[in-house]
């Protein structure tokens, strides 16, 4: 029971962290960056690379964040900025393109499809928490998901910079009039989402292994969590992510594992029928 719950929370934490990445770029540019799952998977592979070279964890994290920020900046420059003012969902094509490129580069550089990612922390294999078994990496994942989503949630709601950043998505022109440098803000947001995605590699990897095929899966699950929680809300991402993770494992444990997707879909539709804007999304009134 506790083992199952902790597994679900850790799984949900991964989804949450993908959704937080989505929100960062959504809030500033109104684009859904489908490469987000790719960032995370690239991070897991790079973690293995760093471990091979025996880098300490601090250096590994720094390196990953720098790599992520660079990749995201390149993505923004070539795949997002040129299409920023279009309203025809072109970003779905270009960001899927970026996701494909990331997968292609990993396949090119890594000989193996699946790699084990060692956890940097204690050498103990599993911990006993409340009578359940959980790996240290999973505890970290849950902790990080809570801290990152809540702090960014607070930041976007209660700081001038955060409000300005999230204000960008409502009306780029108004933000420009207010003197906010929208171009730089968008850049920074993308780089932050890239740095976040990559730097999570050492924490996600020990749970999921480094697997190329995981990238698309994480992007899709994160997308569902984003909608359930409410687009733009990191608090929603946290609640939605943990809920989806727990539903998946409990359905698999107590019912039929193949119903996982169906169960998540049912919850999704129910939430949407009751609150179309998502659990913590903001209702925007239509003006007649």
């Amino acid at each position: 029971m506790i083992t199952t719950l902790l597994s679900g929370l850790a799984l949900g934490a991964v989804y949450t962290l993908v959704a937080v990445g989505y929100n960062l770029t959504w809030l500033t540019t109104r684009t859904v960056n489908f490469a987000q799952g790719g960032f995370m998977v690239a991070g897991t592979f790079l973690t293995v690379w760093c471990q091979h070279r025996g880098y300490p964890i601090a250096l590994t994290l720094l390196f990953l964040a720098a790599a992520g920020a660079t990749v995201a900046a390149v993505e923004f420059t070539f795949a997002i900025r040129p299409i920023l003012n279009r309203s025809d969902h072109t970003e779905l094509v270009t960001t899927v393109g970026v996701l494909t490129v990331i997968q292609g580069v990993i396949l090119l550089l890594s000989k193996e499809d699946v790699l084990r990612v060692r956890f940097f922390g204690s050498s103990r294999e599993l911990l006993d928490v409340l009578g359940g078994k959980v790996s240290p990496a999973e505890i970290w994942l849950i902790f990080l998901a809570v801290v990152i989503s809540l702090s960014t949630h607070w930041w976007t709601r209660h700081t001038r910079l955060g409000l300005a950043a999230s204000g960008l998505s409502d009306d780029r022109e108004a933000a420009m009039l207010l003197g906010v440098n929208t171009g730089r803000f968008s850049y920074v947001a993308f780089m932050a989402s890239g740095a976040l995605g990559f730097a999570l590699g050492p924490f996600v990897g020990p749970k999921t292994f480094a697997v190329v095929a995981l990238a698309a899966l994480l992007s899709i699950k994160g997308f569902v969590v984003l909608a359930v929680g409410g687009v733009g809300s990191n608090l929603g991402a946290l609640v939605g992510g943990l809920a989806v993770g727990c539903i998946e494992v409990f359905v698999a444990r107590n019912l039929e594992s193949t119903w996982q997707n169906g169960a998540v879909f049912l919850v999704f539709i129910s939430v949407m029928l009751l609150r179309p804007q998502g659990l913590f999304g903001e209702q925007r009134e239509r003006v007649v």
Binding site: F78, A79, P82, E91, V93, T94, G97, V98, V101, G104
Partner: peptide, 17 residues
């Protein structure tokens, strides 16, 4: 060849832009 995936991704980005 080995660059097939990358080529497809670049194709999507370029075509989209």
């Amino acid at each position: 060849g080995d660059y097939a995936f990358i080529a497809y991704g670049v194709f999507l980005i370029l075509a989209g832009v």
